[in-house]
Every structure is written in structure tokens, then in C-alpha cells.
Design a protein around this nucleic acid. Sequence first.
DNA 1: CCCACGCCATCACAATTTCCGAAGACGCGA
DNA 2: TCGCGTCTTCGGAAATTGTGATGGCGTGGG
Lengths: 300, 300
Amino acid sequence: MELYHLRTFVAVAEEKHLTRAAERLFTSQPAISAHIKALEETLGVTLFDRTPKGMRLTPVGEELLPRARQALAAASAVMQHAKGLQDELIGSVRIGLNTDARFLRLTALQAGLAEHYPRLEVAMLTGSTGTNLPAVRVGKLDAAFVTGEIDDPSMSVCFLCDEPLVIGAPASLRDQITSTEVADLARLPWVYTSPDCSHFAAMRALFDAHCCEPTRTLIANQEDALIEMIRAGVGLGIVRAGVFSDDEQAYELPVALPSVPLQFVYLRKRENDPLIRAVMDQLCAVWGIEPPTAIAREAG
Amino acid sequence: MELYHLRTFVAVAEEKHLTRAAERLFTSQPAISAHIKALEETLGVTLFDRTPKGMRLTPVGEELLPRARQALAAASAVMQHAKGLQDELIGSVRIGLNTDARFLRLTALQAGLAEHYPRLEVAMLTGSTGTNLPAVRVGKLDAAFVTGEIDDPSMSVCFLCDEPLVIGAPASLRDQITSTEVADLARLPWVYTSPDCSHFAAMRALFDAHCCEPTRTLIANQEDALIEMIRAGVGLGIVRAGVFSDDEQAYELPVALPSVPLQFVYLRKRENDPLIRAVMDQLCAVWGIEPPTAIAREAG
DNA sequence: CCCACGCCATCACAATTTCCGAAGACGCGA
DNA sequence: TCGCGTCTTCGGAAATTGTGATGGCGTGGG
């Protein structure tokens, strides 16, 4: 028994004629006749009395008709529900962060996602460039913010802005910082995040360029921890410009550093995933950039 | 969308593998794959994530699964309900009577029908042989009791018993009935039912055989009315033997009359109608006769 | 590090089902 | 008795569905 049997059953019961039911269902009358016959055979009952005036429901048919309608309604509920879901994203998206929410414009991103996809659960997970990249690779994150050049062909990378870096210094060390020569600064204690963080790379590049090495280092594997360490006077560190504006406990040294790009990454193979597309659309709106052109668009 | 799409959907959701679902559904893996693909296309949503380990429901699929189950359940409810109905007769059967219920053994017939077909409504409609026959012909009755020979090729006739006839006379006329010669009796008033009743035919035959005619007649178009008329002293009449046993108001005259057959009739073209078959089965059980062999029996 | 395994998608072709138009059977009404 | 409208049946055509083989892809063991 298939749905078309039931559709025909209901149509014939309502039209009381195979001919009219056939017209309503855009098919031929023998086809309708065969449907009814097949249905009667599989059900083992007679649904209609055949009269010269048409088809009249038997008491058994009368009794089965509402159930057939119910089955059709249930099937059409599946379709209708699916229609309502087809442009709606449900489930959850996990986005890895690598710095503070303000700078990443998270509230605007969240607002845009919430507005367009109210049933989408958005998880903003703190992390760092170093932890985000593998997380995206293995699917623990759907996408992530990262800083620095990414050289991974499996990743799609979306440039958001350039992030100027400065050397941040604690106010408590101001007396000891008499020169902004890198070699002199290298003799002071340093704090940095993790080796795969772009700030670390910038620091390495800085010291390598001046052929020197910082005396002592301390790892803080999260950016706000790094900033707190600097404020607390543990040592110098590389931070985003502006972090220490109007800060009592730390300040920025006037040393020229190359800026690093802030980027948004996700697995290239998911670039046509509606979830990724939705996030990218909102992200690009927030950052005022063009969304990457899709490789293939499917008909809805 | 057809039911097999939903069946496959549910099977794959439960088995989490196309291969296993194919085994469960006794078909091939590409067929299952095509079902899911087609369903996803008609619904416009992605139901499964394809992983190297198998198929995993998407949130959308998760949401649609219970509805798909519901639709399948509704469809299978149709089948189940039909199974329950397939040997059950529902609706109503209309049986025409032509004489009293005791003689027709109606209580036993009713009991048998009620026991085997509790949902069958049985209508026992009083009438006479003359009114029952056309009612059966045009479908106002499904079957009927009649007396006398029936010569109608469109009717199936089932003989039940011979009905001996007697002349019933009112006790109040006993003094006037001095002879049982038909010619003498003809001078008395007579009551009979209707011209197409077999009792009437018997009376005509009686008088024709003796070349005489009753003086006065009165028509009562129902048998119990006839009997009451006789009791009331209106006149003589032909009744079934035994009606006036132990009766104070009427008695039977010792005049030899031919007996007439009591029969049960229905339209010949309905002899394989389950309703007719059911009634015949019960009727034959009650009367201790063999049911007529069916022309064709269908597989249940 | 590579290969073998299990998974699903795709393809061309075969089997089945479904569909169509024509013809037949049947009862009704003129 | 004939015409009309109904449903059923029939043969062949069309569409759908199913099959087995093949390929891509990621995973896990050697």
C-alpha cells in the first residue's frame, strides 16, 4: 500500500466517480480503477459498491475513509513541516574565538544570526588561534577567528581586518625601560601566549631580526591572561594596539611591529554547507565585506 | 512522496547505515540511497549527514523523524483496521417477512447473525409475499421470506419447508357451517390477504376447482390482520395450519388444501455478496438445510 | 607510511510497475 | 431498442524502480 492508493481512495470517495476522480488527480480513469482494485485487494475488503451511476462507499469504506484521510494528513504534515524547515537552520554552530568579544564584533554577529535563524544555537567558544585551527580541522568547531597567515589548503580563510601589534609594558617596569631598542628590551622578562599564536610568531620575528633573545619568558595560553600578566608586571608582551589605551597599569611602547591579519576560517569542503553560508553571510554583513562566491548553488 | 520513502527514512535513521537498512528492507543499498536522495529533494532539506561511518541524522532529520513515524503509523492503522473488518459485516441487512416471527424462526436467525456479526444491523420488515418480491427486486430489501412458487430467473430461491394450509373459520359462524362442501362454504363471507399472496392463489384454486365463487370478500393486506378478522367473525379465510390450535374464537375446517412452500429469496446476482452469504449461512443453520453452493469463492 | 577495509554515491542496464487508449460489459432512461 | 454514462479489462508503451558493478573517500591496522 502506498500513499497514492489512499489519495485515490479519498478522491473517489469524494467525487463518487472514477472519471471525475481521474480528472481531479490528472490521470486516466483506468489508472484510478486499478488503484482502487489494488487497495481493495491488499486490504481484503470492498471499499465501494459499483453502480451504473458511479461508486458508492460501502459501510466498510465509510469506516476506513477517515483513517485514510488521517494517514494522508500525517504524510502531508511531514512535507509541510519540512517546508517550514527548509530555509531554517536548526541545531547549533560552534565558533572559536581568539580574542575579546568587542574586537570580534560578536554581539552584532550574534544579533544577526539570532534574527535570521532563531532556532540556531550559537556557541562562542573561547580559545586561541593555536587551539582553534585543529579544532576546526577535526570538526570540534564549525568555524573560528584566527590571526596570522594560514597556510592550510583544507581551510577557507576570510580576511576581516589588519590587527596592528604593539609591545605592551607594565607601568611597574617603566623605570627599567630606558630604550626602545629591541636588544635592550630583550633583557627584560617577556610574556607570550602559545607557540602557534601569531603574536608569538611576531615576537620571534622581532627578536630574530635583531639577533637577540629575551632572557626570561612565561607562557600564558590565553590572550586575556597575557594581558593580565602584563598589567601585573610579570613582563612585556605583544598585544593588539589599543588594548592599553587609558590603562593605568600598562602602556604601549613605540616600537614598530608588523601587523597581523584577523581572519575567519572554516573547512573548505564545507563552504557550501548552509550553516557555514549562514554564518559567513552574517559575518560579512557585520564586517562590511563581500561574502565569498559560492562554488555551486543548489535549487531550493 | 510515497510511503516507501518514509519507510526507508525511518529504517536508515534507526540502522544508521544504508547497507543495514537495505538488508532490513530486503532490497539493495543503491535503492535505499536513491530513496533518501529523492526524499531529501522533495522535502528540500538534508535529512542525513553522510559520514565514513554511516548516516547520521541532521537536526532537521531528527525533527522530521517522529512525524514520518506518525505517518507510517497512520497508514498501518488503515491496514490494521481493514484487517479487523475484512471478515466482519457492518452496515445493515433488510429482511422482508411475510408471516409471524415464530413460524419464521426469527429469534434463532437474529441470534445467529448477532453472534457472528455483532456490528451488523438487522432489520426485519413486516410485509407479505406480494410486497416482498418487488422490494427485493429493486433493492429495498436484501432478502425476504415468501410463500408459493416463484418464477423469476433473477431470484435465487431457497426452500425452507412446506406450509400446510387450512380453512380457518370463526367460532361465531360454527352454527352456519353445516357442511364442508366448498360450494356451501362459498356462500359464506371470506377474508383474504392480497391478490399476489399465495393464500389468495390457493383460495382461487379451491373455488375454481369447484366452479364456485365466494359471495362476499374482504381484503386484509397483512396476515395477522386476516387472522384477527377471522377471529372477529368477519368470515372464513385460508391460513397456515396450526394458527388456530387451542383458539377459542376460531377453528380449522377439515377441508383438504394443497400446501404451499415457504421460501427465502434474494437477487441471484448477489448470491456471492458476503452479506447474503452470511444471512444464508445463518438461515440454513436455523432451518437445518444445506447452504447453496457458491458459484465462485474469492480468496480472503 | 601505505594499504585494505567499510561506507556511500553514481552509473548503465534490467525488471517491474504504472499508465494509457481502446474495447467490452452493464444498467439506466428515453 | 437504442444511446448514454458508468466501470472493467486488455495489450502495449512509458515511466519508475531496482540491481550489480564501480568509484571516491575517510579510517584504522600493519
